[in-house]
Design a protein around this nucleic acid. Sequence first.
RNA 1: GCCAAGGUGGCAGAGUCCGGCCUAACGCAGCGGCCUGCAGAGCCGCCCAUCGCCGGUUCAAAUCCGGCCCUUGGCUCCA
Length: 494
Amino acid sequence: MTLSVTNTLTRAREEFRPGDEDDVLLYVCGLTVSDDAHLGHARVWTHADVMHRWLEHEGYTVHHVENFTDVNEKIAARAGEDALGEDEAAVAEHFMTSVIRDMRGLNLKRAEVYPRVSEHVPEIIDLIETLLERGYAYESNGSVYFDVTEFEDYGKLSNQQVEEMEAQGEASERSEKRNPFDFALWKAGGVSPADVAEHRKDDRPIEDGEYGETWESPWGEGRPGWHIECSAMSMTHLDGTIDIHVGGHDLVFPHHENEIAQSEAATGEQFARYWLHTGLLETKGEKMSSSLGNFFTVSGALEEFGVNVVRTFYLSTEYGSKQTFSESAMQEAEERWSRLERAYEAAVDACDGVDARTKVEDADLRDAVDETHEQFAEAMNDDFNVREAISALLELASASNRHLEDSVEYDYQALRRTIETFEELGGDVFGLTFGDASAEGDVSLAGDLVELVLDVREDARDDGNYEQADALRDALTDLGVEVEDSDDGPSYRL
RNA sequence: GCCAAGGUGGCAGAGUCCGGCCUAACGCAGCGGCCUGCAGAGCCGCCCAUCGCCGGUUCAAAUCCGGCCCUUGGCUCCA
């Protein structure tokens, strides 16, 4: 069974064939660290993470690079803001720290490298010089621009025609550019007060002069353009054509288009084979974004819902489609995750009580396990269809519950394989953490106390004092402890 | 205006590339039943879909072709 993916470059489903049969070069277009990350960013990360995990599951070695853009007008504009830091680098460092914490909290597999723009200025300058030498770029007043008319394939990713864009172009813009859609590779000087004014988040007065860090270059002091960094960093850390380039749909044009142009113009080789774009996260009909101010931060979501619910939320829609964030969507994700987790725990509990040498066999559950693996793999290989894949897991949950419900004696082998399947597909591939329900926070004391209350409640129940028993259960529920009675005595979940 | 993606049950969301197994998956919500002192969880069953509209191709279309309407995103910083 082979993986097929939808390639933005060709707008078609294609069989996935990496340059090397064992290794996959994965580049994820990372974040500009000018603010806290929100759920829209985390959606890209999580889908890229699941791709990464699935490729590894299929035997590939994944070389994952994900950049941080730490040089940007928005960052420079916030320098000096309370609690963020005095200069551009300090502000970037501040947000990078929080973003990395978010990434860990989301249980993302680590990339091999997280390159930063500020540490790659020499490589960027080299790349720009190559483009100048080859005639794809020109200098103008200390800035350097890429000449889009020199690159024949310009527009191939977004299917835009330069002529058409020029026809409706920005004639009013007085500019140093030869063509309106030429883009900056290097910008002379620092960040202008006007740019700072646009991105300031507080009311401090804006003084004349230049903001942000600048670097020495053959064209004078200046700053790298936005698009060139990804080309320079991916070339530095990934050798040859990138196999999979992942990013949000909003980056197709101009960012990714420009990356292709400058990279392929410089090397003469294909920049990336498969371009996978994730659909945007929306709230109330518009995309979640920092500039619209309608965002829910990753750290806030992790705190409120927990990793597993957040990941399950993302896993209920394919990466390529847009997804809507809402309270009810999160509630559904919570229910889906609970269903999986409860089925897993029930299987584990049951399995613990069964003699491994038992001869009991339940063909239904055994078949269900096999089918789960088949359906899961088929779904994942079909353009990472995570919704279908998680359905397979939910069906296994049903099959497992049914076995526990219907059987007098349990099938040890089948339960064992059910548990392993949850751990392998739900855990390793989807990054969900089973069996961790009570591992968050310091629950050892809390757990003991809950047990104590439950003992008291059991005594009350034995005495037929249901009024008190229910009062205790309600009190625990209010504290976030779910109590469930069963034949084997009460159990609880936090 | 140009480019791209999408319109499927109360919600959400697969299936559309490669037409038939779709009398439309998984789930949430709702309604019955079993179980339970009760509740929850679980199990069983039910409910809600002429698959945006109109036309065409075909023995056969949610799936292919054409037209139209609507939504979202990009064309400016953006995941």
